[in-house]
């Protein structure tokens, strides 16, 4: 069950609405209660298609794996000392910051697919993206790193 993950996929006409879900996450079972549950609601469009769903899964899976490794290798006291929050989505910022940094540093010319990844993270959900990197944050990187 390690790294198990359940995602509800929703869309504009789908079953999932923000703040609602059809699943009861916890039932007291120590193993299944460790499974992460989440859902995604974006408007699928021609520009990105369903690829953002795969990115959503991939990024959250990495976060779950990363947190598992961190908890295995470091004591809570050490994590408190460096103010690391191992709650859900904490390790996602590694990917977010790297995408911003590479965009600013390399003008994202090295990888067409990386550029598409940044676009998916940057585009708001109503436009079919994940909306995880705001324009302001990206601008801050491009303005301060050359």
């Amino acid at each position: 069950m390690e790294h198990a993950y359940q995602i509800e996929f929703g869309h504009s006409n789908g079953l999932v609405k923000q703040g609602e879900t059809t699943y009861d996450f916890h039932d007291g079972d120590a193993v299944s209660d460790e499974v992460r549950w989440t859902y995604l609601q974006i408007n699928v469009n021609k520009k990105f298609g369903t690829t953002p769903f795969v990115h959503y899964f991939m990024a959250h899976l990495i976060d779950a794996i990363a947190v598992s490794w961190i908890k295995t290798n470091y004591q809570n006291s050490k994590l408190d000392e460096v103010e690391i929050d191992t709650k859900k989505d904490g390790a996602l910022s590694i990917l977010s910051d790297l995408l911003c940094y590479r965009s600013a540093k390399l003008n994202i010319q090295t990888s067409d697919y990386e550029e598409k990844t940044l676009n998916i993270w940057n585009a708001p959900r109503p436009e079919g993206g994940l909306g995880w990197i705001g324009k302001e944050k990206l601008t801050c990187f491009t303005s301060n790193i050359s």
Partner: peptide, 23 residues
């Protein structure tokens, strides 16, 4: 950059946590 972004008032969860440098 993350510190500047946080200080700009355009707070964002990942920026305020400054997680990459901490990790």
């Amino acid at each position: 950059v993350l510190n500047k972004f946080s200080a700009s008032g355009e707070l964002d969860k990942s920026a305020s946590q400054n997680t990459l440098p901490k990790l």
